[in-house]
Computed example of a mutant assay.
Amino acid sequence: MIIKKLLFVALLIISIGHKLYAQSPFMFYITESGDHTDNKALAASYAVVEKLPGDSVWSVKQFNMRDIILTSGFFKDETLSVPTGKFIYYHKVDFSPDINYRANGIADTLNHIQTTGYFVDGEKSGVWTDYSFGRKTELHTYNKGRLNGLCQLYGNDGNVSLEGYYVNDHKEGEWCGLDAEGFVNFTDAYNKKGINIKHTNYLENNYRPPVMPFDLHTYLRKRTAGFKTPDHTGTLVLDLKISKDGVVTDVKVAQIVDTNFDELMVNAFMNSPKWKPATYKGQKVDSKFRLTFNIIDVIRPETIY
């Protein structure tokens, strides 16, 4: 990735001497292979580095030789070795004269944003999002540089097509493949080693599980507002009973994390909006549904640049 090139070039610049840092902002050229060069004719891009006033943070922006931005981000040190805060990666588009891509994309001149996310102390943290011409395609959650938390893939219609959770870089628990209406087409169950231990294809047996017709994460944020999540990590497992009318009639805690937090989550689902009920051969039926939540200590950047 481009950031790797920036880091590599930064180390080369350090070997040249700290005199480059005597003035801010300053610029250096980068070859196609990511090497530093003083010869503009050999450069494929260049980076502009500037120390933010009254702060120890250094801003870095990388451009191609037509002055189109490729990457923007921040580093904690003048050696550009510890990324911090928000990073944005762009994808250059060669526009066809008969297609107006810019009308559909998150555009910056001839670019569209490809990836956004945050670093904390040099490691990816929180939500990282990928885009294609302005359409969100993937969402991953990181904690201390490792995949930990929600992962979602999106279809061309913008709806979630695959959803599940990572724990320490491994898929864990139940991952769901969804159709355009939010119904589950299949599920894959993963153990703590990230091994797929069970695949269920609901299209083969004419059964469709119940579906939440509301955004779960937005709903839970509202229901748990002001409550401090447990300090320790763990996995909360809830077993729900949902009537053929879409009403949650019972919630049992199958795996405990924290008594107070567990009770809060049970109440949240007992009072949740109606679901789309499960169906079997086209008929609405009562059903059971298991939800797994991985409670992790996600470090959030205190300062967002």
Rank of each mutant, 00 (worst) to 15 (best):
P83C: 07
D77N: 10
K40F: 08
F87E: 10
R66W: 13
Y29M: 05
V60H: 07
I30D: 05
I30N: 01
F63C: 01
E50W: 09
T84K: 04
G73W: 05
L70G: 00
L70E: 08
A41F: 08
V49L: 04
D67W: 04
I14N: 06
K86E: 12
V57F: 14
P83H: 13
A10N: 04
D35S: 03
A44M: 10
G73D: 00
F74V: 14
P53L: 09
S15E: 06
K40G: 00
E32G: 00
N39K: 11
P83L: 12
F28K: 04
F74L: 15
K61L: 06
M65L: 06
P25L: 04
L12S: 06
F87S: 03
G85R: 14
I68N: 12
L20A: 11
L20F: 14
S59K: 15
K19Q: 02
H36G: 00
N64Y: 03
I13G: 01
D67Y: 10
K61H: 14
N64E: 01
M65H: 12
H18N: 13
P25S: 01
H36C: 00
E50S: 15
V82A: 03
F63W: 10
I69P: 02
V60T: 11
D77K: 06
Q23M: 01
N64H: 03
L11D: 11
S33I: 07
P53G: 02
G54I: 06
T37R: 07
F63M: 01
S24I: 08
P83E: 02
L80R: 07
G73T: 05
E32I: 05
V49A: 00
A47L: 05
D77T: 07
A10M: 01
L12E: 10
F74Y: 15
F26I: 08
K51A: 08
Q23H: 11
A41K: 15
A10C: 04
I30G: 02
S81R: 13
S72F: 06
E50A: 15
T79C: 05
T37Q: 06
K19N: 00
S59V: 03
E32M: 03
Q62F: 02
T79S: 03
H18R: 09
F28I: 05
Q23R: 13
Q62G: 02
K51F: 03
L80Q: 07
G85I: 13
D35M: 04
A47I: 04
T71H: 11
G34I: 06
D55N: 13
S33E: 15
T71Q: 08
G34P: 05
S56N: 15
N64I: 00
R66P: 00
A47D: 02
P25N: 02
T31M: 04
R66L: 07
K61E: 15
I68P: 01
D38L: 06
S45K: 11
I68D: 06
G73L: 08
G54C: 04
T37L: 02
V82H: 05
K51V: 03
I14S: 02
K76S: 07
I13Y: 01
L42A: 09
V82Y: 14
L20C: 05
V82L: 07
F28V: 03
A22C: 04
I13S: 00
S15L: 12
N64W: 05
I30Y: 08
A10R: 04
G73K: 08
T31D: 03
I69M: 08
F74T: 14
